[in-house]
């Protein structure tokens, strides 16, 4: 991510100056790497409030709040588009869930050192690309199991060209999958993995949870 501003963490913490924040939001529109970093670290930000001493709202405040709501009836505007109905999660559950969704997308300085010339570690996510004779095998790890209406989708990005959809896959109980990458890797600049609706998509609809860069 050389060339990217080191602003994902301060952006999430609300610590950028207003002009910097606007510039970073513009940068995010065109930078998948920074979008992935933001998506990965967001669950940590969501967890921070839990460190505050747990307090209970006063009964008087609760009554005042609910009176205010009932005094302000709203017009029905139909149902919101709930795409996924998630079961209510207990606090420990939501923390784990948020982290699990981001588990493969974390972009941190904990990358595994390259131990062999033909093993390429992902710049985003926990994955390894094994390249041999122009062909590749992608091993992803620690990806959460998906609900039945979702699938992982592999994308190939030839240098200078748009992403093209490739393989749909699921992970095993350990969150791992080994997939052969179709075709020759010769002209491929990046491999990405995203979560997509069952049946796959023609273009990614979610941030990448794995990014492999071939240099």
């Amino acid at each position: 991510m050389s060339g990217c501003p080191p602003d994902a963490a301060p952006y999430l913490l609300g610590a950028l100056e207003p002009g910097e924040a606007r510039a970073f939001v513009r940068h995010l529109e065109g930078c998948a790497v920074c979008r992935d970093e933001v998506a990965s670290l967001a669950p940590v930000i969501d967890a921070l409030p839990a460190s505050a001493t747990p307090l209970r709202v006063r009964a008087a405040f609760r009554r005042r709040m609910l009176r205010a709501v009932r005094a302000e009836p709203k017009l029905s505007r139909g149902r919101i588009p709930t795409s996924v109905s998630r079961a209510r999660a207990a606090p420990a559950g939501w923390l784990a869930l948020g982290l699990a969704v981001a588990a493969a997308a974390i972009v941190v300085a904990v990358g595994i050192p390259h131990t062999r010339a033909r093993m390429i570690q992902a710049s985003v996510g926990l994955a390894t690309l094994r390249v041999s004779g122009g062909h590749g095998e992608l091993i992803v790890e620690h990806l959460p199991a998906l609900p039945a209406n979702r699938t992982y989708e592999l994308w190939l990005e030839p240098r200078g060209e748009a992403l093209r959809p490739s393989t749909l896959f699921a992970v095993n109980a350990q969150g791992r999958a080994d997939l052969g990458v179709p075709g020759d890797l010769g002209d491929i600049g990046r491999l990405l993995v995203t979560v997509e609706p069952r049946g796959g998509s023609l273009a990614p609809t979610m941030p990448a949870v794995v990014v492999e860069r071939l240099t």
């Binding site: 963490a9 913490l13 669950p43 940590v44």
Partner: peptide, 9 residues
């Protein structure tokens, strides 16, 4: 900030 958030994660 970045290192701290990464370690928290």
């Amino acid at each position: 900030m970045r290192l701290g958030l990464s370690k928290l994660w």
